[in-house]
Design a protein around this nucleic acid. Sequence first.
DNA 1: CTAACGATTCGCT
DNA 2: GCGAATCGTTAGT
Length: 200
Amino acid sequence: MKLPLSFYTRSDVVQIAQELLGKILVTRIDGQLSSGMIVETEAYCGENDKACHANNGRRTKRTEIMFQEGGKAYVYLCYGIHHLFNVTTNVDGLADAVLVRGLEPIEGLDLMMERRKMKRLGNKLSSGPGSLSKALGITTKMYGQDLTGDTLWIEDRGIELKPINIKVGKRVGVDYAEEDALKPWRFVIRNNLWTSKPAV
DNA sequence: CTAACGATTCGCT
DNA sequence: GCGAATCGTTAGT
């Protein structure tokens, strides 16, 4: 079943990041379905987290969506090349988000491989935030998409993870955030092939 | 208006 | 393992 708005509007973004492991991220573009299980996430908190784009009152055109009510897609371009997909959380006025960094493909394998221009299936297909966005066809056109809509959404298919199967670590690529770079806000599924590089 | 840089990936060595 | 690719956003002039 599709996750309800109430899943996203809760206040503990770190908790939500952890719960998103094992959920299914789905896109439907031009009638074509593709999906995968979320195997890696990172939490970003608007208040008190220098790694977050919206930290320190930076409410700009780009970060605006994070300040609104949760349950929307925050997509932005990184290094001029890669589209990174985030889920916004919390209530109106609080800019929290969860970055999805790894996906285990489930449906639409051919479509994903075509988008990624890969000849053979490999874990590079959708591990890493830029890669999975491209595999699912997520671009900045999806900015602000409602996750309770029918283009881009997240499902719960009853997959349950025990705490022992979840690894926790510091976030990737945020060394500039000083002391906040050390926060244990990265969650990955243990022994899953589809997580991005540095295993915690 | 201008300049600097990033929540990265890929290809080559 | 290392470096280039590449452009929107941001902050400062």
